[in-house]
Design a binder for these strands. Structure first.
Length: 561
RNA sequence: GCGCUCGUAGCUCAGUGGAUAGAGCUUCUGACUUCGGAUCAGAAGGUCGGGGGUUCGAAUCCCUCCGAGCGCGCCA
């Protein structure tokens, strides 16, 4: 990668200046950072190393920069010029043939262009959504789903081995599932005219009425004569199974599928929960009090208080199961765990980390991403959860209304750290105030030009074969510069676990493309065949990069719109 | 009360300790006898919530205050 080459050039300059005494030898271990200047007039890349060194060497940063540039031979490098500017930045301008070579790289790597090895050797387990099977998948879950699925693509593109998992809280000792079962049982009885009420702390959402109606239609009144206990047993199972199936469908319609649905109940059946508790006891991290078993989460992870692992009624808590689950993840050979939770769970980070530490694993190998909420607006009014859906906004409704691509794109448009809000009317509009269409239009426009060429009988020539040096117009070079940044953007987005950077970047590509399109016609009168072929090749290059980019976001790249 | 997160243009949001804080929307003015106008060019719009501090340099790091959201169960 060209930034690595630049870093080497700078590092060599520092070493050379140290060697001949121009700079003190303790500059050797200076950290070399290559950045892209905010302002294009400062060139393609820059380094601030002179500013960083100025303090230790006791001279002005411009002076340091001058001495470094004097020790920087540029023959045979991609660098055309190295200039000192401002307080002491060294700005690099690259030769245009380096940009032209990027076209060949895109052509050779094709849909692998942008892939790199920055995360090679890592085995990452991404766990996300993991909504309780007590209601439909919500829009907030959708944000996590879009983020998790995009991270899977990003990590994979960076050479990591990635698995995705949805953790299903279906444990038999879950009071939530008890309530769900009791709520569904009541709805079922209501279908047959029995005046049974949903528990006051149960699930009031009307989706359970629909589910009860389905069950009633399928099996008839066979469960009416069971004892309440037996009926509750039947319905907790039925409710959970059907909710999970529904969740799976909703996520699939959103384009998100998991490598594995991991059932909490399996951890009890295998004895892993009991084993984990025993191990925590043996290690001295668990103690008895008031008839319950407690985890020393305060001492282990600075939690606000210790947490119960086993209640006095002998039921284990989800804390115990979660600890066992994460042990299970590590034992399967994953080197890094990433969990995506809603921000309302931030109070649970410390206790999970405590559980991981109590079982002898490094809590720092488990990253917990907390996503803030997403608020939907319609004409300036907040869209509220419906009673039908149990006071949430179902993801399925959003997908139905604005489509999968728009829903996913909007979920990835902003940093997960901020509470995002977006307007449904804008998201549906097919105009340029809709960022989804702007991104997809870039791809469709490239495809349109290439299609047009084909119709006119102009064969598309390979980027490696056309005369790339003909691409010397500022807009052509600017577009190439933008496309050549793709591998770096991918790497940085993966490192920061921030796919929203890519949605910002795709706009930059779109802008560069449209400007190029405006000023550099390929198929109009008066364009020489050689230039035409070079420009068509550049359209193909752009199309490939945009398709790869949209692919990382999980959004389709249409040929026509 | 304690803890976590967040306050950036009228609106929605970017911004990795660096150069004159950037986009989109909105408003206004324009563009090619259309390789797709779902586009492009230009203008307008800022005490980066307030105040201290660290630093050669702070929207970014620290402290404090103000405001918003969330969390503080032998629920998940």
């Amino acid at each position: 990668m060209v930034t690595d080459e630049l870093a080497t050039i700078v590092r060599d300059a520092v070493a050379s200046a140290c060697a001949d005494g121009t700079l003190p030898s303790d500059c050797m271990d200076a950290a070399i950072e290559i950045e892209t200047p905010r302002n294009k007039q400062f060139g393609d890349f820059a380094t601030n190393v002179a500013l960083a060194l100025a303090r230790t060497v006791g001279m002005s940063s411009r002076e340091v920069a001058e001495r470094l540039v004097a020790h920087m031979p540029l023959e045979g490098t991609p660098v055309a010029s190295a200039e000192i500017a401002g307080p002491g930045f060294i700005n690099f301008r690259l030769r245009t043939d380096w940009l032209h070579d990027a076209m060949v790289a895109v052509e050779e790597r094709a849909d692998q262009y942008g892939h790199n090895t920055s995360m090679a050797g890592k085995r990452i387990l991404l766990e996300f959504v993991s909504a309780n099977p007590t209601g439909p998948i919500s829009v907030v879950n959708g944000r996590a789903a879009a983020l998790g699925d995009s991270l899977r693509r990003l990590f994979t593109a960076c050479g990591a081995e990635v698995s995705t998992e949805f953790y299903v809280n279906d444990a038999l000792n879950s009071t939530q599932i008890d309530l769900l079962g009791a709520s569904l049982a009541a709805r079922y009885m209501q279908e047959f005219g029995r005046a049974e009420a949903v528990p006051t702390d149960g699930y009031q959402g009307e989706y359970l009425i629909e589910m009860a109606r389905d069950i009633a239609a399928e099996v008839g009144p066979v469960y009416c004569d069971l004892s309440p206990e037996e009926r509750s047993q039947v319905f907790r199972k039925l409710a959970a199974e059907r909710m999970i199936a529904q969740q799976r469908e909703d996520l699939a319609a959103f384009g998100v599928e998991f490598d594995r649905w991991f059932f909490e109940s399996s951890l009890y059946e295998s004895g892993e929960v009991a084993a984990a508790i025993e191990q925590m006891k043996q290690a001295g991290w668990a103690y008895e009090r008031d008839g319950a078993l407690w985890l020393k989460s305060t001492e282990l992870a600075g939690d606000g208080q210790d947490r119960v692992l086993v209640r006095s009624n002998e039921r284990e808590t989800y804390v115990a199961a979660d600890a066992a689950y994460h042990k299970n993840k590590f034992d399967r050979g994953f080197t890094h765990l990433v969990n995506i939770w809603g921000a309302d769970h931030h109070g649970y980070v410390a206790r999970l980390k405590a559980g991981i530490a109590a079982l002898g694993y490094d809590p720092d190998r488990c990253t917990i991403i907390l996503t803030q909420m997403v608020l939907l607006m319609r004409g300036g009014e907040l869209v509220r959860g419906s009673k039908r859906a149990g006071d949430i906004v179902p993801l399925a409704d959003l997908v139905d209304e604005i489509g999968r691509d728009a829903a996913r794109y909007y979920c990835l448009l902003t940093s997960y750290e901020t509470t995002a809000s977006f307007d449904l009317e804008t998201a549906k509009r097919q105009s340029n105030d809709n960022p989804v269409y702007y991104a997809q239009y870039a791809h469709a426009r490239c495809a349109a030009v290439l299609r047009r060429a084909e119709e006119a009988g102009v064969p598309l020539r390979r980027a490696s074969e056309v005369d790339r040096s003909l691409l010397a117009h500022p807009k052509e070079l600017e577009l190439l510069r933008t496309l050549a940044a793709f591998p770096r953007e991918v790497r940085q987005a993966a490192e920061a676990m921030a796919p929203h950077r890519l949605t910002a970047y795709v706009r930059v590509i779109g802008q560069a493309l449209h400007q190029y399109y405006e000023e550099c016609p390929a198929l109009k009168e008066g364009v020489s065949p050689d230039l035409r072929d070079s420009r068509l090749a550049l359209f193909e290059t752009t199309r490939t990069v945009v398709a790869n980019l949209l692919g990382l976001l999980g959004v389709s790249a249409p040929e026509r719109m």
